[in-house]
Computed example of a mutant assay.
Amino acid sequence: MREKLEQRSFLFTLLLVSLLFGLVLKPFWGAIFWACAITVIFSPLQHRILGRIGHKPNRAALLTLLVCVVIVVLPVLFIATSFIQEGLALYQRIDQGEVSPGKLLTQVRNAFPLLPDLLGQLGINLDSAKLSETALAGSKVLAEKALTAGQSTFGFVVDVALMLYLAFFLLRDGNQLTELMVRALPLGDDRERMLFAKFSEVTRATVKGNILVAMAQGALGGFIFWVLGIPGPLLWGVVMAFLSLIPAIGAALVWLPVAIYLFATGEWLSGAVLVAFGALVIGLADNVLRPLLVGRDTKLPDYLVLFSTLGGISLMGVNGFVIGPLVAALFLVFWDIFTREFNGR
């Protein structure tokens, strides 16, 4: 009796301490998650480097991180800086009246009289005054954010530094940590190895696949905007890249309204070119690359990738585009194990 009480008390205390430890690490969950993702993605490169330089784990982990910084971190910082600069310039033009959202909307309404009624049935009210007020409010908010950009930049740099610091140790000691977790978790060693393998497979496929699709769609969208002379092609290219994390409809949320505006202002050729390019080229990048890079490697149906991605983003923000499909894949693995081992029929 006393032994059972001690065991239950220990398990309760273990659970409580683990929850408290999770709360302590809560501010750094983003950095921890992306450090794990970097480790999973670049571990094949690290093993290849180890094969070249011999058993020198510290040097191999450091070289792998340097490659990651050069091909991932620095380009992201450059694009983010350019995006902020173009975004500020655009909002300053709105704030100074050089660009009038209300005027643009009036042109669209005059060219397509049925559009307001159609959107009204969907619960979308095209009010020029409200749109102008919203745009001005957005410009003011962005200006206020710009004043505190130094603090935000410092926090971002700290998160990146923590991510790279942790990724170094995960790259160096990842195999030992995995074996430690296999011994510690009471799920059965074979099941745990299967789950860790699935975690690595889905994380690598989701991050690499979605980022490649986002880069392709953002680059194509920015290119066609630049060709057609639309202001801020880099800004809108980055926006399309972010929105392309939403399967099927992401980039169209940008290029389709712009195409409608071009038609409304009488630029029929530019509008037709943008629609054709968006539907055939940008859309093709999503319809072809995403199933090949994400669905095939994660072994998830396309509809499950869509719903898990949307659900993950709505719950967890930008990290959800990886965590959502990961949870879906682990859900299927757990039920597969249950079906085979506990319900043999």
Rank of each mutant, 00 (worst) to 15 (best):
A205P: 09
L62P: 06
A264P: 12
N343W: 03
G209Q: 00
Q217D: 01
P44E: 09
E179S: 09
A285V: 03
V160P: 04
G51M: 08
E144G: 15
E86V: 09
L195E: 00
G155C: 04
A146Q: 14
A184P: 08
T13D: 10
A60L: 03
Q176S: 01
K26Q: 14
V239Q: 03
G155M: 09
N319C: 04
S200K: 13
A272N: 12
R48M: 11
T203C: 14
S132V: 14
L306D: 04
V40Y: 06
Q46H: 13
L20N: 04
L228A: 06
L171P: 11
S270V: 12
A205L: 06
K103Y: 15
I211Y: 02
F156E: 11
L50S: 14
T148F: 09
G311Q: 01
R183N: 15
S200V: 10
G30D: 08
W268I: 14
L306T: 12
L269D: 10
G278I: 01
P291A: 02
G30M: 10
L119R: 04
M181D: 08
I323S: 00
S82Q: 11
F223N: 02
R193P: 05
L118R: 10
G317A: 13
Y91H: 11
N287G: 07
D117P: 02
G229D: 06
E144Y: 15
L147K: 14
F342E: 03
A272C: 06
P27S: 05
D173M: 03
V258F: 11
V207N: 11
F154D: 12
T206R: 03
